[in-house]
Design a protein around this nucleic acid. Structure first.
Length: 426
RNA sequence: GGAGAGGUGGCUGAGCGGCCUAAAGCGGCGGUCUUGAAAACCGUUGGGGCGCAAGUCCCCGGGGGUUCGAAUCCCUCCCUCUCCGCCA
């Protein structure tokens, strides 16, 4: 959510900055509602003050045994008008809040202008795509040949966009997870957390998935229709919400968390996209990095968090590039995002394997997550960041395709061998 | 699933429907004293909205209701704890 104060005082500037991501803000509507809000709120509070005074007077009069009849009737009349005003104020505030919750974050000044993903800007590259002396296969063929990746049986059990991994590939996926968690906890200073995979609506509102993107989520509805849970689309949701409603001691900052969780996405609107293989699934594993930092530190933190995610690819010796997302490609809550794209020989292109974002105070304002500024003694909003470190399913795909041998065996990179019982190829 | 007890400020914990503008203690911060510290004593100490300000409004788990007036009464939901049952 944007700062309501800015939304009131600096609307034209906000409109311009949102235009960078192709979002057009309804300035007229906001101005109209805001004008109404102010008038009604001032009057409501004036009446409330009046009522409070009179009610207090009744209390005193009763205590001293005086007659209260006339006082009572004036206050009763006041109450009637107040009820109407309060209802109207509530409606206006609800309308404003609905509007505000649907406005995306302001892009950082360094975000490239652009109309679509083609306008993303490559920042740097690591490694060279391998030159094959045989036609490289994709992960579907490779996994099938190993008899360890089965989409048909997954379709029988569940449906499209699911996979069953068996034997060496199931083990490899577990090895990847273990390797990533160890790297981030022992070398990058993250604290490992285990979190719920089912979350409530409030948490999803905090990180920005609700109310606008409910169709992307899987929801579980309790029979009574009361307690609704959602399957997490990313560990970002439960992990960032650890600080919802809290005021954090500045001495504890930055908070750096890493979590491995499955992720569940409906993939509504992506029909026909990546229908084959493990690239786009309803359920996939991910290791997620989350940081909560002071506003001054958040852009340095974005660089270091991105570097932490890159380190995984470097240790696995996978060629990748880093791109800065342009305004049009930026996620709803993000102020700035770097995507990490790994080289996939099976597709002959770079594909997203991690997305690292600084949300500034957009999420923390929604969830009221603050720290106490030692200089002022006052609570201020934290900045939140997160990034995949990495998407595990896509890492598995990248390993298969990049480390395949002509006979269909897969070489295991050195960094992973100790997690595979010393095996060098499968 | 059954039976019961509770949710009050950073923590503990009071609070007959009307100076609750929430007691008190602990903790925190500032000061006095001290070579320094401790102890003692004094003071101070929640969050949010509107407003240039004076000020004013809201928040006692969430929501709704009764009332001139609700932390206090009623309804409902959520959460915590105890006992029983079941169970990874």
């Amino acid at each position: 959510m944007l700062d309501p104060h800015l939304l009131r005082t600096d609307l034209d500037n906000i409109q311009q900055r949102l235009a960078v991501r192709g979002y057009s803000l309804d300035v007229a509507l906001l101005n109209e509602l805001e004008k109404e809000r102010k008038a009604v709120q001032v009057e409501t509070e004036r009446l409330r003050a009046e009522r409070n005074n009179h009610s207090k007077a009744i209390g005193i009069a009763k205590a001293t045994g005086q007659d209260t009849a006339t006082l009572m009737t004036t206050v009763a009349d006041l109450g009637g008008r107040l009820t109407e005003l309060e209802a109207s104020l509530g409606r206006i505030q609800q309308a404003l809040s609905d509007l505000a919750l649907g406005i995306p974050n302001l892009p950082h000044h360094s975000v490239p202008v652009g109309h679509n993903e083609k306008d993303n800007v490559e920042v740097r590259r690591f490694g060279q795509p391998r030159i094959f002396d045989f036609p490289p296969k994709d992960h579907i063929a490779l996994g099938g040949a190993l008899n360890a990746m089965d989409f048909d049986v997954a379709a029988k059990i569940s449906g499209a966009r699911f996979v069953v991994l068996k034997g060496r590939l199931a083990q490899l996926q577990r090895a990847i997870i273990q390797f990533m968690l160890d790297l981030h906890t022992t070398e990058h200073g993250y604290t490992e957390v285990y979190v719920p995979y089912l979350v409530n609506a409030e948490s999803l509102k905090g990180t920005g998935q609700l109310p606008k993107f409910e169709e992307d989520l899987f929801a579980l509805r309790h029979i009574e229709g009361r307690t609704d849970y959602y399957l997490i689309p990313t560990a970002e949701v439960p992990v960032t919400n650890l600080v919802r409603g809290e005021i954090i001691d500045a001495a504890l900052l930055p908070l750096k968390y890493v979590a491995h969780t499955p992720c569940f996405r409906s993939e509504a609107g992506s029909y026909g996209k990546d229908t084959r293989g493990m690239i786009r699934q309803h359920q996939f594993e991910k290791v997620e990095l989350v940081q909560l930092v002071t506003p001054q530190e958040s852009y340095a933190a974005l660089e270091s968090l991105t570097a932490n995610a890159e380190q995984v690819l470097q240790r696995l010796e996978l060629p990748y590039r880093v791109v800065a997302l342009c305004g049009a490609d930026l996620g709803f809550s993000s102020a700035k995002t770097y995507d990490l794209e790994v080289w996939l020989p099976g597709q002959g292109c770079y594909r997203e394997i991690s997305s690292c974002s600084n949300f500034e105070d957009f999420q923390t304002r929604r969830m009221s997550a603050r720290f106490r500024n030692p200089a002022t003694g006052k609570p201020e909003l934290l900045h939140s960041l997160n990034g995949s470190g990495l998407a595990v399913g896509r890492t598995l795909v990248a390993l298969l395709e990049n480390y395949q041998e002509s006979d269909g065996h897969i070489r295991i990179p050195t960094a992973l061998q100790r997690y595979m019982g010393g095996v060098e190829r499968i």
